[in-house]
Design a protein around this nucleic acid. Sequence first.
DNA 1: AGAATTACCTGGCAGC
DNA 2: TGCTGCCAGGTAATTC
Length: 302
Amino acid sequence: MPELPEVETVRRGLEPVMVGRTIRRVDVRRPDLRWPLPAGLADSLAGREVFALRRRAKYLLIDLSDHHTMVSHLGMSGSWRIESATERPSDPVGASAHYYARGKLDAHDHLVLHLGGADGFVGSVVYNDPRRFGFVLLEETSRVEQLPGLSVLGVEPTAADLSAGYLAEMLGPRRTPLKSALLDQRVIAGLGNIYVCEALWRARLSPRRNASTLKPLANGKPSERVRRLVAAIAAVIEEAIEAGGSSLRDHIRSDGTMGYFQHRFDVYDREGKPCRRPRCGGVVRRLVQSGRSTFYCPVCQR
DNA sequence: AGAATTACCTGGCAGC
DNA sequence: TGCTGCCAGGTAATTC
């Protein structure tokens, strides 16, 4: 489920319920996630106030009092949901309502943060993760960027951070398929299988093309192809965030509603269907690259 | 050293 | 219906 747009959607959903509130109590129901939850996590978190929710690539960063940050990664199947809120917070960022009163826990609800506020708010946020590839860490705020996984990350895939010059320089030395290079978090941080497929389709570039063919031109400037690719990446990520992410097998928004970007996929999971590009006439094909499914149109993606 | 493969886990679905 | 095999948004360890 969760690539950058999905994690950003989670961040926006949790922000109004968590910021300014205090973690009153923590229930650890199952500590053996991708990495075991830190010993004493419940006691460490209890009593801390939530100052801010940030995101870096696919990592959710929850800044707490006393200079500590809770780091949450959703893996393949993780989600946070909001339960039992006593009041409806205002909604400054446009994320939808913040209530999801499922009311009971299931076997995959591994961590429960009970929140309280001076305003009388009482509620909880619940981490659910069937496959348990996700994890939660607690680290000093000033050291978060040095954590393994975070320290190696490339730039965010947004128009503000990702330039054609940077991408051309990064891809130039790589002897690997373009698809694989774009999945590498050291190049661009936050792209996953779906949005790489979608961005390559929009840029009309084949996932099989060697990454080094996008190296800078002889005059040092980025080629037209790289500029197309950068624009496609930034656009697809921005549109997906705007749509609340993609909801595939399970839903991911903290309030229980679904993102709807999955309805806008041009190639992902569309094997055998006609290419959506006008007058292309191609048929979407599926192939496997570095163990992951790639979907692309062999006619218009070159 | 860099790139490809494997491991980690559970659930859903297609096919029989 | 129930079994088997395959597939799934992620990262990191291992192998080549």
